[in-house]
Design a protein around this nucleic acid. Structure first.
Length: 602
RNA sequence: GGGGCUGUAGCUCAGCUGGAUAGAGCGACGGUUUCCUAAACCGUAGGUCGUGGGUUCGAGUCCCGCCAGCCCCGCCA
């Protein structure tokens, strides 16, 4: 109901002006126009919208809040355009004004939603240069030659969902997988590769490295125990950095094998990413140092080139440094991140042309990013109106409240985690089929358990406010009750059941009427979808969308339980089918934006 | 020592620019099935919003102090 909110707010501002012409004029001239504070009603019994402003204006206008409210209501009651939309306008409590929309108005909104595949969510405007604004979402980012584990889960799932929402809004979204594909660990990996598989370099991509993780472990073991190996590894790093052909070949092979492994996980999770790892920015690191130096930001301290922060101090009250270039001349991650920021904001041939960059990483990196962001701003690499945001999230914990580990105390591999979710979901399904005496074929069982299993993992993560740590529990996420993926998917399955039995759900040209309170509350919830999407886009909190979809499902289930649909006739039946259709569309789209596909039957 | 995040029902968590009597789910207890998938629905119980101040007409929300937990703090990412 965003557009409606706009319209009503417009009428309200006019009413306020007519009620208190002098005060509004003074406020406007002071550059702080009076805000009537029109918001969605905090409770259903307060109607659709509430106006909070009267309470605040009391001091300014030297009138009681209720008197002010009365004046505003008086003016609103003279506004024909406003009255067309509204059923009641009432003063309540200390001076709130509650507004209930008229049935006609709500039904008109329903009509337009039914004919709108975007469900009321506006498409973003082009920018001054006539292009769609670009957003870089930096997420997932595993390390080459290591396995994706539970630590990558949140970044991957949250980053993907935010990307989907931006894409749906029409932004040009650049999903970046900033993989760890550079650094000292490659010295040992390449040295080990040359030793154990000398032919690998000739065979290139066709060479089968086998289990990369085991490979990494072996290399690491040798690195830690064998002095000679350690020495060779260090030399190898230098060779690689100088662009030695053999070394580069080995590096590429390792990256490519690793990429294939990652892709298996991304395919299972249905996640798209452009791989552009740390190595990509090597070509810009020199420029970064030079520019910072030219700007006079660079200070040499204990041999390292640093930028000292203005916003944070360390112990003894001294400014904290961001190290740009190490004493040995090497660069570290802050430099790479700065080069990335610079590149991503630069216009298209030379960069990504983004206006907003989002980093989805754990909250442990908060101070790192705040330092890097400060340097980027002082270096003027962030354009006017450009947004640079860290989207932090908490740890994944086990049900014991400690960091999630396997029984043997190892890091949980993502593939195992997904396998287990699907396995458990399959067991649940089979138990259910058994107890209901249902017969389903293998394809159905596989499809349902895979969809439900993956959906459960994604939804459990997304439905939690990302800032806090998150307690991982298969039992809870797969539970059929509560705020879980299966509960939402089930609501949709119920609607599919109805549409299978109804002749059709084509209700586009009919008129609607509602008589039950369950119908009205469902409809009102449905019409809030657009606000939720814009809120998530701004606040980067997908759990708000989850909460909305859960509440929508609850209202639908109540409606389904208490109001006959197919048994009704005429206009009520058709109106109820319209609610079903819009609920299904909203759930399908909403879940889609969370990266969760839906089912017809389950 | 400095900085950040967190602290809301027995448990897991929501709580949107400060707004009306703080909400869900699970668990507990009790009910509902001639009907579209009961994987549902309805009801009951359960709270000093860590704590002490402050700002305000109004504070879970903003500011300050304190307590507890987690994380970060110069050449790893």
């Amino acid at each position: 109901m965003l557009s409606l909110l706009d319209v009503i707010n417009g009428r309200l501002e006019k009413a306020l002006e007519r009620a208190f012409p002098e005060a509004t004029e003074v406020a406007r001239k002071a550059g702080r126009p009076l805000d009537p504070q029109l918001v969605a009603a905090s409770k259903p019994e307060f109607g659709d919208f509430q106006i909070n402003g009267a309470l605040q204006f009391a001091k300014l206008l030297k009138l009681s809040p209720r008197q002010i409210a009365a004046e505003i209501v008086d003016q609103l009651n003279k506004d024909v355009d406003f009255l067309k939309l509204v059923e009641t306008v009432e003063i309540a409590g200390p001076g709130f004004i509650n507004i209930s929309l008229s049935s006609t108005c709500l039904i008109n909104e329903l009509q337009s939603r039914l004919n709108d595949s975007r469900l009321g969510v506006p498409f973003v405007n082009k920018n001054e240069s006539g292009h769609l604004p670009g957003i870089v979402v930096d997420f997932s980012s595993p390390n080459i030659a290591k396995e994706m584990h539970v630590g990558h889960l949140r970044s991957t799932i949250i980053g993907d969902s935010l990307s989907r929402i931006f894409e749906f809004r029409g932004y040009r979204v650049i999903r970046i997988n900033h993989v760890g594909d550079w650094g000292t660990q490659f010295g040992m990996l390449i040295t080990h590769l040359k030793d154990v598989a000398p032919t690998a370099l000739e065979e290139g991509d066709s060479y089968d490295l086998g289990d990369l993780v085991a490979f990494y472990r072996e290399a690491k073991k040798r690195f830690d125990s064998d002095q000679n190996f350690k020495l060779k590894s260090r030399e190898e790093v230098v060779l690689l950095q100088r662009g030695n052909v053999q070394s580069l070949k080995a590096w590429k092979l390792l990256c490519s094998k690793s990429r294939d492994d990652f892709q298996i996980i991304y395919d299972r999770l249905d996640i798209n990413l452009i791989e552009r790892g740390e190595s990509f920015y090597n070509q810009f690191l020199n420029d970064v140092v030079m520019e910072l130096d030219n700007l006079g930001l660079l200070v040499v301290d204990q041999g390292a080139k640093c930028v000292f922060l203005q916003t944070s101090t360390g112990k003894d009250g001294k400014a904290l440094p961001v190290i740009i270039q190490k004493t040995d001349g090497g660069y570290n991650y802050a430099t790479t991140d700065l080069a990335a920021i610079r590149y991503r904001f630069q216009e298209v041939p030379n960069g990504d042309g983004a206006f907003r960059i989002i980093y989805v990483t754990d909250s442990g990196q908060a101070s790192h990013f705040s330092g890097v962001f400060e340097v980027a701003r002082r270096a003027k690499w962030v354009p006017e109106g450009g947004r640079l945001e860290h989207v932090p999230f908490g740890l994944v914990q086990g049900e014991d409240g400690k960091k999630l580990k396997t029984r043997s105390g190892e890091t949980v591999r993502l593939r195992d985690l997904l396998d287990e979710a699907i396995e458990r979901s399959k067991n649940d399904l089979c138990r259910r089929l058994d107890s209901e005496g249902r017969e389903e074929n293998e394809t159905f069982i596989l499809n349902v358990s895979t969809t439900v299993g993956i959906a459960a993992v994604k939804y459990a993560d997304l439905s939690q406010n990302r800032i806090t740590n998150y307690q991982f529990s298969f039992d809870k996420m797969l539970s059929l009750q509560g705020n879980t993926a299966p509960y939402l998917l089930y609501a949709l399955v119920r609607i599919s059941g109805i549409s299978r039995k109804a002749v059709n759900l084509d209700i586009s040209l009919k008129t609607f009427e509602f008589s039950q309170k369950q119908e009205w509350s469902l409809l009102r919830k449905l019409l809030k979808f657009d606000e939720v999407i814009l809120d998530v886009e701004e606040e980067l909190l997908p759990n708000r969308l989850c909460t909305y979809l859960f509440e929508l499902s609850q209202l639908f289930n109540r409606f389904y339980d208490q109001v006959p649909i197919l048994k009704a006739d005429g206009i009520p039946r058709c109106s109820r089918l319209a609610l079903c259709k819009l609920t299904a569309d909203t759930l399908r789209l909403g879940l889609g934006l969370l990266g969760i596909p839906t089912l017809e039957r389950m």
